[in-house]
Amino acid sequence: MLIDADGYTYCHEHLHIDLSTQKGDIDCRLDQYALIKAEMDALVERGVYNIIEVTNSFMGRNPQFIENLISDTGINILLSTGYYIEGFFPPELYSKSAKSISQEMTREIVVGIEGSSLKASVIGEIGSSQSTFTDIEKKVFEAAAMTHFETGRPISTHQSMSTMGRQQIELLNRFGVDMQSVTIGHCDLKDNLDDILWLLDQGCFVQFDTIGKNAYYPDSRRIAMLKALSERGRLNQVMLSMDITRRSHLQQNGGLGFCYLVDTFIPLLLENGISQTEIDTMMRHNPNQLFQ
């Protein structure tokens, strides 16, 4: 059992990430240990015991940072292996075969992540660009499928602005991946209920994982979509998270902070008719099923 089944799980987060070079913005270097530790302590107090940390190679992953957080806070953190999206790949990736990339991923799951005592538990976050799916991104998906078959570990994806989820599923289906081992990320950034229902019909999990990012898409609309899924009895494949990636997202820096999901968003769900049982399904049962 990789998940602490007694607690809630945030299904898609970053505790140490550095995209500042690519984005030209120091705010995109999330590395302030004392502030993040304090927020993890607060989550544990609220019953959030698991974080799926989807920062992978070349995104600024720091396993030593994670080791310290685990030791200092007691929170359970699952690390990831893979590559992100076009524009955030190391140059050497373009000349590697899918098999070679898969061997790297498998090594991080089976042997461990270099320089640490930790192993990766999730294949992710692997993604597609906005409204397109490049050849190199597809090669990473092929490598992820190979790694899934080798290790049995689940695949967590990134959709840029809630686009290309269908194409991701179609590609993974072509590789023969069991959809019950797949979760599609960032499904909550536009009005796309029909797409979400299609994804659910394929058997995969979907993530409402940018909660609190109201500049992209308001939480009121996220709640309306979750309510629509609730009315259809479809929340048994939905998971929740915040995808915190910037220093400015932390509470002490003026952001909403990691606790916003449990302190503010979940009460709003309850006020809008989503039951505590359904919340437990999204925050505990579904992650336990996928990431076990």
Rank of each mutant, 00 (worst) to 15 (best):
S131H: 09
F133R: 00
D194H: 08
L193C: 06
T147Y: 05
T151V: 15
M161N: 13
N214S: 10
H148K: 08
M164R: 07
G212I: 07
S117H: 08
D178T: 06
F141V: 06
T163H: 07
A144I: 02
I155S: 04
S181R: 15
G165I: 03
D194N: 14
N192I: 08
I136E: 14
Q159L: 14
D178G: 02
T183G: 01
D178L: 03
R174L: 10
K213E: 00
L189E: 11
I169E: 02
T132Q: 13
R174M: 09
C187E: 06
N192C: 13
V140A: 00
Q202Y: 03
Y216L: 11
S156Q: 04
V140S: 01
G152E: 06
G176A: 09
F208S: 12
N173R: 13
H158Y: 04
F205H: 10
G203R: 12
D178P: 12
K190L: 13
D219H: 06
F141A: 01
I126A: 11
Q207T: 02
I126D: 09
G127T: 00
V140T: 01
K213W: 10
A120W: 00
S156H: 04
K119C: 13
C187V: 10
G127N: 08
Q180F: 03
A145M: 10
L189S: 05
C204R: 01
F141L: 03
H158W: 07
L171Y: 14
S129K: 07
V122A: 11
V140M: 01
Y217H: 04
D194Q: 13
E137H: 05
I136M: 11
A145Q: 08
D201R: 15
G152I: 11
F141D: 00
K213D: 05
P218W: 13
I126W: 08
G124A: 09
S131I: 07
A143W: 06
E125P: 09
S129F: 12
P154T: 05
S131G: 06
S160M: 05
E137A: 07
L171W: 09
K139A: 10
D209H: 00
M146S: 05
Q180T: 13
H148R: 07
A120Y: 01
L171R: 11
S160L: 02
D191R: 02
D178A: 11
G152Q: 08
Q167I: 01
L193F: 12
V122N: 09
F141W: 02
H158G: 04
W198F: 11
Q168N: 00
Y217A: 12
T134F: 03
F149W: 04
I136S: 10
I196P: 02
D201Y: 11
D195F: 04
T210S: 14
V122Q: 03
A215P: 00
A143D: 07
L197A: 03
K138C: 03
H158N: 07
T132F: 12
I155M: 04
F205R: 00
F175I: 06
S156W: 00
D194E: 15
T183A: 13
S156R: 00
G176D: 08
V140R: 01
H148L: 05
L199I: 02
F141K: 02
L118A: 05
I184R: 01
D201P: 14
V177I: 15
H148C: 13
R166E: 12
M161W: 08
W198I: 01
R174D: 12
S160K: 05
E125K: 03
I169G: 01
V177H: 11
F208V: 08
